[in-house]
Design a protein around this nucleic acid. Structure first.
Lengths: 208, 208
DNA sequence: TCGTTGTTTTACCATTTGGTCAAAAGTGAT
DNA sequence: ATCACTTTTGACCAAATGGTAAAACAACGA
């Protein structure tokens, strides 16, 4: 009788478990991103998921558990575009592709963007460790790559940290402040104009 | 017996009224900006203001009333820098001064910035009318000014709406996402570096 | 000093909300 | 069909929270 792993073997999640946890997390993403952590209620999540509240609490230890699980699961996907920056690529192209990917994520995953925005706005109380352990090293690596490009004069001189901040700010703005953007712009597809602008912006900033 | 105004004369607020309403609004700014509308409680606001909860409700009709009053009072101050853009000034200087003023406000009034950010993130449910009635006309005017400058070839060709969005995004980012910025940058004064970066960014974007 | 008005507090209330518990209803292998 | 196990539910709870009522208190002019 071989034991698959150590003492506390976590039983593999059943099909039902997988399905319902996914249902709950998707519902929670919807609700948390719309109302923030405090503004969201378990009842809303339960209704959105099509499950009863006690059933939700059968799969998660509590509201906070759901929120933290969500943030953890999304963090990697959220940072993927930055990981794809190739130190050996053409600097300007690499950065512009990063901008483009971030803008696409803003359009395709606005819920995720708002979820993170909400969390950071409140001072990152439930994700602070990730900022240090996951985000900081990745950003430091990227900063080094950019600084090398600057040192090699392959892009114009800029502060790498603030460059990254500006890319985050300008791209996520279209998801996080959508209500404002929609109120001010009548075009049907704002993102097309946004991409043209951002392409120009970073080309002019970085071209040598 | 002259009546100072029409039927329902609103009595002038007493000194106590003025003081306490100011106390409450300042406390509410602190609490709302930190926890968002749903996350803030009347008890927190009362404690911060040094008043009892029923006393708070003597001066305001309810939680929502406080929030709306805050947003209304702050809106004008928040938009002031954009109003100061001078159509007859030097285009690049005018825009850079606007960027600088917005960045300063991000540093000096981060609570106000986060209050608005929270509200917009939630879909602007309590401020939507202001977006239409106050912000939209002002932005339209500014867009016209910028488009004129572009037409006169006094600045490089850019989409005015997206230029404005990018200025908002990049400057407010330092207030709204402060938790993230602080986690990633060790410099004592981030805003100095931010200003150098933004000055460069918009100079390179707009210089003819 | 009295009465009037404006201000503050004490004691409550109703609802919402995160969470619990035990029983009931599946589910699947033998 | 049975048994062990997982999943779901209805009923409930305690705390938090927005808000109220009425009495107590303060301010101030006549």
């Amino acid at each position: 009788m071989p034991r698959p792993s150590a003492e506390d073997t976590v039983p593999k999640p059943s099909r039902i478990q997988q399905r319902n946890r996914a249902l709950i997390l998707d519902a929670a993403l919807e609700v948390f991103s719309k109302h923030g952590f405090r503004g969201a209620t378990l009842d809303q999540i339960a209704e959105q998921a099509g499950l009863s509240k006690p059933n939700i609490l059968y799969y998660f230890e509590g509201k906070e558990d759901i929120h933290v699980t969500l943030l953890n699961r999304l963090m990697d996907a959220w940072l993927a575009p930055m990981r794809e920056i190739d130190p050996n690529g053409q600097p300007l192209e690499e950065i512009l592709r990063y901008v483009q990917r971030k803008l696409e994520m803003s359009r395709e995953y606005p819920r995720e963007s708002r979820l993170f925005a909400n969390e950071i706005l409140q001072g990152a109380p439930r994700i602070g460790s990730h900022l240090d352990r996951t985000l900081k090293p990745l950003v430091n690596d990227t900063v080094k790559i950019i600084e090398d490009w600057v040192a090699q004069k392959r892009i114009a001189k800029v502060d790498a940290h603030h460059l990254i901040f500006s890319i985050w700010a300008t791209t996520q703005h279209y998801a996080d402040f959508d209500a404002q953007v929609q109120a001010l712009v009548s075009e049907s597809n704002v993102h097309v104009g946004a991409w043209e602008f951002l392409d120009t912006l970073y080309r002019r900033l970085l071209s040598v």
